[in-house]
């Protein structure tokens, strides 16, 4: 079962059983963004609250909540994401999303290059570490599950665009 244990690392199962920042936020002031995986019916809802949307990428994500339903990979990835971005700037969250999606890509090297370029030109506090999210690296070996892992992040990217009006 070594392949399976690569996929279902203990930290992933922990986030699945005890999801962080689970729930809803009042809209407004928060924004609510839904993401769907049409192939499996999984659904993620990302609620974002910013200190000042007018600051764009410099705005700070003061609170985040995750709703929806889905498999352990989509739910744990979204849970880790919420923990990683809370209290950080929109720009830093975008960078982290780019890094995470690069890790999930079969063209990893290529896209990480892109991520680094983005980081250099970005006007933010700096790159957030992947931290616990690194545990999801094993998903790449299970290509059909990559969309599960990236569902929350794609929803986040859509959400920060909506929240900052970009």
């Amino acid at each position: 079962m070594s392949g399976l244990e690569d996929l279902y690392r203990e930290i992933i199962l922990d986030h699945y059983r005890s999801p962080r920042n689970r729930g809803e936020l009042a809209v407004p002031p928060a924004t609510r963004t839904e993401g769907f995986n049409p192939l499996c019916g999984d659904e993620i809802v990302v609620f974002l609250e910013l200190d000042d949307a007018a600051k764009g990428d410099d705005a700070v994500i003061t609170d985040v909540r995750i709703g929806g339903q889905g498999c352990s990979i989509s739910q744990s990835s979204a849970s880790m994401m919420s923990a990683a971005i809370k209290g950080h700037s929109v720009g830093a969250a975008r960078e982290l999303a780019t890094s995470f999606k690069a890790m999930m890509s079969i063209h990893e090297g290529e896209l990480e290059g892109t991520a680094a370029d983005d980081a250099e030109t970005s006007d933010t506090a700096g790159e957030l570490p992947l931290g616990d999210l690194d545990a999801l690296r094993g998903v790449v070996k299970f290509p059909v599950r990559i969309k599960c892992a990236t569902l929350g992040w794609n929803t986040l990217l859509q959400g920060v665009d909506e929240a900052t009006g970009t």
Partner: peptide, 11 residues
């Protein structure tokens, strides 16, 4: 979740 279940069953 059915996706997780089928993944383990495949093993």
């Amino acid at each position: 979740h059915p996706h997780d279940l089928s993944q383990v069953l495949d093993e």
